[in-house]
Amino acid sequence: MKEGKSVKFNLQQQNHQNGHLSPFKLAKLLDPDASWDKDQLGDVLHWIRQAVALVCGLLWGAIPVVGGVWFIAFLLISTGIIYGYYAMILKVDEEDFGGHGALLQEGLFASISLFLLSWILVYSLGHF
């Protein structure tokens, strides 16, 4: 058992020394001077959008609200948070990542599904 741990530790050390393993730190999420690659930034934007979708879906279902105007409100809130995050907090050059369209589209369709699912479930269960 000790041997398995030491082999894993040595492998991690070798990967880290070779530059293959870059640990992700939470402080990087708010650091405008941090360097981002396209996949890392895409993942962060995707998960932020999923969190916003879940919160909005739960909130919309619990209040309860219905109608297309609330769907549009979710899209505006979600897109505004994503834009504000990468443009104002991280201050990345959007052209390095495919432009505004590519960055604003990260996680959009999955978040719509999550938003609608949580909204409908909470609304249905709470107002049966």
Rank of each mutant, 00 (worst) to 15 (best):
D39Y: 11
C56F: 03
I63A: 05
I77F: 06
S6F: 08
S35P: 01
I77E: 05
R49A: 10
A102C: 08
D31W: 00
F9N: 15
A110E: 04
R49N: 07
V52C: 03
L21G: 01
K25L: 12
S22V: 08
A87Q: 11
W119I: 05
W119C: 10
T79E: 13
L54H: 01
W70D: 03
W36M: 09
I72M: 09
Q13M: 05
G101Q: 07
F9S: 14
I112C: 01
I120T: 14
L58R: 01
N15K: 12
Q40Y: 10
Q40R: 10
A102F: 12
W47V: 10
L103H: 02
G98E: 11
S78L: 06
D39N: 13
G99H: 11
H20N: 13
Q50I: 15
K8E: 07
G67K: 01
S124L: 09
I82Y: 08
G99S: 09
F97R: 15
G57Q: 02
S118C: 10
A27N: 10
G67H: 00
Q40H: 11
S22F: 05
H127N: 12
A27M: 09
E106W: 05
I112K: 03
K28M: 11
L41S: 09
L90Q: 11
S113W: 08
L104I: 04
Q40G: 12
E94N: 07
M1R: 06
F9A: 15
L117I: 11
C56Q: 04
D93K: 03
L116S: 10
A73I: 02
A87N: 09
L76H: 00
F24G: 11
S35N: 12
G107T: 04
S124Q: 13
H46G: 01
Q40E: 15
S35V: 10
F109I: 15
G107V: 12
L45S: 07
W47C: 08
E3F: 14
G4L: 15
F9H: 14
S35C: 06
L116G: 02
S35A: 14
C56V: 00
W119M: 12
K28F: 00
A102G: 06
G126L: 10
V7L: 09
K2M: 14
A87V: 03
L26S: 06
I89V: 15
L90E: 04
F9Y: 13
M88H: 13
L75M: 12
K8M: 12
Q50M: 15
L21D: 10
M1N: 03
Q50A: 12
S6C: 01
